[in-house]
Design a binder for these strands. Sequence first.
DNA 1: ATAGCCTTGATA
DNA 2: TATCAAGGCTAT
Length: 490
Amino acid sequence: MDSPSCDGHTLTPHLGRRFTDSDVSAEAAQSVSLRSSRMECSLAAGLEELCPVCGDKVSGYHYGLLTCESCKGFFKRTVQNNKKYLCAESRVCSIDVTQRKRCPACRFHKCLHVGMRLEAVRADRIRGGRNKFGPMYKRDRALKQQRRALIQAAGFRTDSGPPLGSTQHRALTFTGDLRCAPILHCTAQHERISYQPPSLCSLLPPDSPNQAQWASSSNWTIKSEPAISSAAVMPSDQLFSLSPRAPRTPQLVTEFVRCDPDELQLQNAVAARLLQEQHGERHGGAGTFRGMCLMADQTLFSIVEWARTSIFFKQLKVNDQMKLLHSCWSDLLLLDIISRQVLHGKEGRLLLVTGQEVELCDVASHAGVTVAGLVQRGQELVEKLLLIKVDRQELACIKFIILFNPDVKQLEEHHFIEGVQEQAEGALLEYTLCSSSHLHGRFAHLLLCLSELRSLSALAEEYLHCRHLGGEVPGNNLLMEMLHAKRSWA
DNA sequence: ATAGCCTTGATA
DNA sequence: TATCAAGGCTAT
């Protein structure tokens, strides 16, 4: 694997920047009266599942995963009859329970994207029996069961626990190990700033002798060998923070939040760096496509830096670190933008990583049909998250769930990575059950939003690749490395 | 064409 | 033998 641009770790010592996100596409915060029907659907408990395609009630495992009856039927009809659909819009239609009939093309695309399996539809149409996915379904059930047991073992009740929404806008606490280091490594030559973009490989530190050590400040133990269902196990007395300010917040959630960079410092760093990058260049302003690419590139640096200094990730070998980042960069990039709108954004405006604000109507009017569609769906996602009042704790968990993806191929430390993801999911589930007794199914709603986020980021990536083929994306940067890396081993 | 309900049959 | 994910049927 490995990026072809991996040429050593020479730039590693310089990388002390700490900030996060921004992006290429867009979305915005706009408080709109969302359909309340979905929120009202009485899910019996936080563990109830929603169809990852449309959000309807799940009826069982169908073609590889838990879906509703209608998407099961739709997928079957489409595959059996070899149907070809065409999207009348720009192939980025939003699919939910009320709109799923409107665009079969995008619905089928989403079916595939969330993981429905073509090969589970039988060519011979023979009924009954089981297929090869049986063991997979069983393992999935066992995992869900184990998470339930984990929560019960922690002795927590679903009908208790104060809401934590009040902490939503509290400033992040800085931690000592996030160094504030030189932002730029530019060499001025003949009035022009020449910046040598480091490759991802060089951003990540070389494997260090002590990397096998666990995070020094914590007691987390993720077993790297597969225990029962390879789940990571944490003693139940460590599950919740004892802090009086955040009662019954799982300690791991607190740890995840602590890894997040500070928004203000991030703004300053990215803005300063963009200024340097754009020096001497024309057509690089924030309003241009090229400007957006530069901003996305800078955000990627911050994401790499966040990952590099984060709990669990810093313990991985560089090869696995690179594989994980190559796999999920666009999800993290989009989540960064979405999070910014949800936590800090204003209605009708797009808040950039630099702190600048753009009118959403301006974005829509200047964009092509594809970008406008992406922006629209991004907005809808922001609205959904605002409606359920997602908070920083939950977003921090989601970042780790995205990063520690055990489905990435050829991971050396697969079991460890799987264990971390399970821990992160478990922590999020516990947190949602503790903090939102008023809203059943919050966890499932968050996972549904994650599914939508992944779907959107895949579309944005496709779009970016098209623009790249047209020679419109500035090259020789981290953004391009990511774009190529994923495609080279996908 | 959709989606809720029905029938089937290999596997645990 | 019970389970449950396949495919089938049919009112809308």
